[in-house]
Write a protein that binds this DNA or RNA. Structure first.
Lengths: 191, 191
DNA sequence: TAGAATAGCGAACGAACGTTCGGCGTGTCA
DNA sequence: TGACACGCCGAACGTTCGTTCGCTATTCTA
């Protein structure tokens, strides 16, 4: 039991280095287990504990718990033991947390403060899922005058309009069809 | 060539779902290739292009380029060629972008709206670099009453105070020493 | 102290793996 | 129009995979 933790740590290190889990034989070498059946037992334990799972094609894959990025919920004093098991470490790599469909997701840098009341500041990176249609209330990246514009999509008498989240800016009422580049699904800010 | 991109996209989506790459046979099923040798050729091409690599124990693994998100700068009309190959410079993984010192970096979920004027909303994840000291003007996670508090650090007559970014909240003037957990270096929001 | 539970070993096995090779069809270009 | 490169197919291959079984050694516990 107590040792499973260090085994898991080794696997986590390995995964961090290679972004793939090794085979049973390699796990054995890595952890100092000489028999694959020992590895199988270990893997079964880790699966039971929710750290590993199998993909549909029966390959070993880490679960989100496997990543255990410390998501600090309550203050942890230095010196106190780190409650690894129970305190449900969430959040994975940030990429995994934010991005569900990598192939259709892009980042767009925000210019200006027209969305600052929605907590979107100048210089932020907006995570955008490319899509040609959106619904009222979603924040969208639209193409206006051959430029990206980040605004909230709203309906005004059956007509789509782009509403900034800053009273200093006017609502944009596109003349023809509204060209939507994608929908905002997340935000990243670096200080 | 042109099709390799869509193949790659499928693999990226698969990896995002399962955190593991499928076997050659499964790749074939996934992409509609009936022969494993076709898959082998594809994999060789993707390795050459720097998207995939082999681990020491000869397992397929993604590279960091595999994860990189395109950073869209100017609007790209549908129909125009997608400048993915060359403009690879403007691609970034969010983790690399945000986190410089992984071992001392944690995520803290924001509760409440006391920092909303700084574009930090309820439910956001704050990227915090653990550190015991900070400077005036930095946004810090402090421990007050055994709870995390996210505030901007300020000086008031030689004394550190915690200033919310929301006029509805009062400035916190700690009685004894101010216990600092870390400094905010970034922010992640998922909608 | 006896018995159960827990790790681990080692060997055997069929299934799945990735590689390799020859061949096919299509598009390009001199 | 012929040669060639490319993407793919299909079959054959030796290797490696993960599973399973019986076994030992250690630790816990009643």
């Amino acid at each position: 039991m107590a040792n499973d933790r260090s085994y898991l740590a080794s696997l986590q290190d390995y995964y961090a280095r290679h972004r793939a889990l090794p085979s049973y034989a390699s796990i054995g070498t890595l952890l100092g287990l000489r028999s694959k059946s020992s590895v199988a037992a270990l893997v079964a334990r880790l699966k039971l504990a929710g750290y590993l799972e199998s993909t549909p094609d029966r390959r070993l894959a880490p679960t989100s718990r496997f990543f255990a990025r410390p998501l600090a919920a309550t203050p942890v004093r230095a010196g106190l033991p780190d409650p690894v098991d129970d305190a449900e470490a969430d959040a994975v790599t940030i990429d995994d947390y934010l991005i569900e469909r990598p192939s259709s997701t892009v980042l767009v840098r925000v210019k200006g403060d027209s969305m600052q009341d929605a907590g979107i500041l100048d210089g932020d990176l907006v995570v955008v899922e490319k899509r040609v249609s959106a619904e009222k209330g979603e924040i969208v990246v639209a193409i206006v005058d051959n430029q990206f514009t980040l605004k909230r999509l709203d309906l005004e008498g059956g007509q789509f309009v782009l509403r900034p989240e800053n009273k200093a800016y006017p609502v944009i009422r596109p003349e023809g069809a509204l060209e939507i580049f994608g929908v905002m699904i997340g935000l990243v800010r670096k200080l």
